[in-house]
């Protein structure tokens, strides 16, 4: 394994974020155990990821504004909204509760690892938002399927496959216009290599209008 190949395939990032195949991981581990340069790059990239995770919720708030501007620009093409000045600040995002935080864009994180909140509210936002489902992967699980349903069982998002994440976070994109105020459930199914269901976790959340 040479460094040109490692760089070209973005292997350090893919290894640390569990995007590399098991075979790639095994080969890369054999390599970096004997390669101070790769080891140093792995450590610094891990430090960067760890540091990103520690940023306070408002760190990425600025991009909400950017996203909102993009949304405004798109709307302007087809509607009279082009004549409306954009607001001076991003739309407010109010996220009470210890296990739900707005990280950006906006991104709402639902965590089960350190105690779940059964009814975490998401106050309405404009356009798209990301629901980040945060937990520790269990052994044997190689990927996840995610499904979002309303409290009445209506399927909002059909099952989508996600690879196993090193960070334990799955991000799913939702559009606020697809949601009515009410209770929803994000169901994560952990699957083995051969597709068998090994574990099922339910993240309840509430979408509401302020």
């Amino acid at each position: 394994m040479d460094h040109g190949q490692i760089e070209a395939t973005n292997l350090i990032d893919r290894y640390l974020t569990n995007r590399a195949t098991p075979e790639e991981c095994a080969r890369f581990e054999e390599h970096f155990l004997d390669c101070p340069d790769c080891l140093s790059r792995l450590e610094s990239t891990r430090g960067l990821i760890d540091g990103l995770k520690q940023q306070p919720p408002d760190t990425f708030q600025r991009r909400t504004w950017v996203g909102f501007m993009g949304w405004i620009a798109a709307a302007a093409v087809t509607t009279f909204a082009i004549f409306r000045p954009p607001p001076a600040t991003p739309p407010p995002v109010t996220i009470p509760g210890p296990t739900l935080t707005a990280r950006a864009g906006p991104v709402f994180t639902l965590a089960t690892v350190r105690g779940a909140q059964a009814d975490a509210p998401i106050v309405t936002v404009s356009g798209e938002f990301t629901l980040a489902l945060d937990f520790e992967p269990a052994p044997g699980i190689k990927g996840f399927a995610v499904q979002v349903t309303s409290g009445t069982g209506e399927q909002l998002m059909s099952e989508v496959e996600h690879p196993l994440s090193a960070s334990g976070t799955i991000g799913i994109g939702l559009r606020s216009q697809d949601l009515k105020p009410g209770l929803y459930r994000a169901v994560v199914v952990g699957k083995s290599v051969d597709g068998r269901e090994l574990q099922r976790v339910i993240f309840p959340f509430r979408f509401q209008v302020p």
């Binding site: 974020t17 430090g47 995770k53 991009r63 996203g67 991104v107 960070s167």
Partner: peptide
């Protein structure tokens, strides 16, 4: 975290922050 904060502040475009977030954290 302080180092990363500094790096984020140095990024020329807010979009790049989001890019880092979406790739490394939101997977």
């Amino acid at each position: 975290a302080a180092i990363v904060r500094k790096i984020l502040n140095e990024l020329p475009q807010p979009r790049d922050r989001e890019l880092l977030y979406r790739f490394y954290i939101a997977d």
